[in-house]
Amino acid sequence: MNTLTDSLWRDNLKVVYLYDIGSAKALSKFMVPGWITLVAVVSGSIRFSESLCGAEISAGDIYAVPGRAEVDSFSGVLRIWLVSCTAEFAVSSRIVRFGAGYMEIFARQESPVLAVNGKELRHVILLLRLLKKKIGSRHAVFKDEMVLLYFNMIVYEYIDLRYKYGKNKAILHYRNDKIVMDFISLVQQNSSRHHDVKFYAECLFVSSGHLGKAVKAVLGISAKRFIEMAVLSEAYLLLADTQLSVSELAEHLNFDSPAAFSGFFKKNTRLSPTQYRLSLKF
Score class of each variant (00 low, 15 high):
Ala217Met: 10
His195Pro: 06
Ser233Tyr: 07
Ala214Pro: 10
Gly212Leu: 01
Phe226Leu: 13
Arg225Met: 13
Val218Leu: 07
Gly220Lys: 05
Ser208Glu: 14
Phe199Ser: 08
Phe226Cys: 10
Val215Trp: 03
Cys203Asn: 04
Ile227Arg: 03
Ala223Val: 05
His194Tyr: 12
Ala201Asp: 01
Gly212Trp: 07
Leu204Lys: 09
Leu232Lys: 11
Glu234Asp: 14
Val215His: 00
His210Glu: 14
Ile227Thr: 02
Arg225Lys: 13
Val215Lys: 01
Phe199Thr: 03
Leu204Val: 04
Phe226Asn: 05
Ser233Ala: 15
Ala201Met: 06
Asp196Ile: 04
Ala201Lys: 06
Val231Met: 12
Glu228Trp: 02
Ser222Asp: 11
Lys224Asp: 15
Gly212Lys: 05
Gly209Arg: 08
Ser233Pro: 00
Phe205Asp: 14
His195Asp: 12
Val206Asp: 05
His210Asp: 10
Leu232Glu: 00
Met229Val: 01
Ala214Ser: 15
Ala201Leu: 03
Asp196Met: 12
Phe199Trp: 14
Lys213Ala: 15
Leu211Glu: 03
Glu234Ile: 07
Val218Ala: 05
Lys224His: 09
Val197Asn: 04
Leu232Ser: 10
Ser208Asn: 11
His210Phe: 04
Cys203Val: 07
Lys213Gly: 02
Met229Arg: 12
His195Tyr: 09
Val206Met: 06
Lys216Val: 07
Leu211His: 00
Ala230Gln: 10
Ala214Trp: 08
Val197Gly: 08
His195Phe: 12
Arg225Val: 02
Ser222Cys: 00
Lys216Leu: 08
Val197Ile: 12
Ser222Arg: 08
His194Met: 11
Arg193Pro: 02
Ala230Cys: 01
Asp196Asn: 13
Arg193Met: 13
Arg193Ile: 09
Lys198Ala: 15
Ala230Val: 04
His195Arg: 11
